[in-house]
């Protein structure tokens, strides 16, 4: 089996730094290369995000199979669940579960909502969606390939539940970008 972080303390710290900046500055692409040898099927950024955040206390859903699934179970220790709605973290490597199907938290405990990590084909912040909201001074741009065609529609619906809602981390290779529930996506026509 492939190893986890070569240095568990500093690997997790640098993975977290990327995630914190991604959540604080939605759509800004962060480098996350703390994990050098991810298992087949997992991108370094997505695998590092899981290693950084998931553990025995966080039920985890993933569609990853085989060696990747075993790697996740072994290195995070997180209980793998079949039910999307019961997961605190979700890692989608192929078809993303519908946003409305995951745990959105409650109005009193919106922090109990799930975080969805999606492995996508590419991320580019030169053009594309116009993102606004907390963390964004004027607007950030983001083009994502590999998301469902109706993602922006699902996202708009997610925003209507605020403060409930799912937060998304988009990963491609060693890069990642965050979409906290507060971010508004405007599609260029």
């Amino acid at each position: 089996m492939k190893p986890g972080f070569s240095d568990p303390v500093f690997g997790a710290q640098s993975g977290f730094a990327a995630l914190m900046n991604a959540m604080a500055r939605p759509g800004r692409i962060q480098d996350c290369n703390a994990l050098h040898e991810p298992p087949p099927g997992l991108d370094p950024a997505a695998a590092a995000a899981l290693l950084t955040l998931a553990d025995a206390e966080t039920p985890l859903w993933t569609d990853a199979e085989g060696e990747a699934r075993d790697w996740i179970a072994f290195h995070t220790g997180a209980p793998l669940v079949e039910d999307v709605a019961r997961a605190q973290f979700l890692l989608a490597t192929r078809a993303m579960p519908a946003l409305a199907s995951v745990d959105l938290g409650t109005d009193e405990t919106p922090q109990d909502s799930a975080t969805l990590i999606v492995q996508v084909a590419t991320l580019d912040d030169a053009s594309g969606w116009r993102l606004t909201g907390p963390g964004i001074q004027h607007e950030h741009r983001l083009t994502v390939t590999g998301l469902p065609a109706d993602f922006a529609v699902q996202w708009a619906r997610n925003r209507t539940h605020f403060p409930r809602g799912v937060d998304v981390v988009l990963c491609a290779g060693t890069r990642l970008a965050g979409l906290p529930r507060t971010t508004r996506i405007t599609e260029d026509r």
């Binding site: 303390v9 922090q111 909502s113 937060d167 906290p180």
Partner: peptide, 27 residues
């Protein structure tokens, strides 16, 4: 002691809280 005193499990728990805190500003 671990780097920065806290053990890694505690740091993970705090880091999860920080990410949700950023996602729900002021909560």
């Amino acid at each position: 002691y671990n780097f920065a005193y806290l053990d890694e499990a505690t740091k993970r728990m705090i880091r999860r809280a920080i990410l949700k805190a950023l996602a729900i500003p002021g909560h």
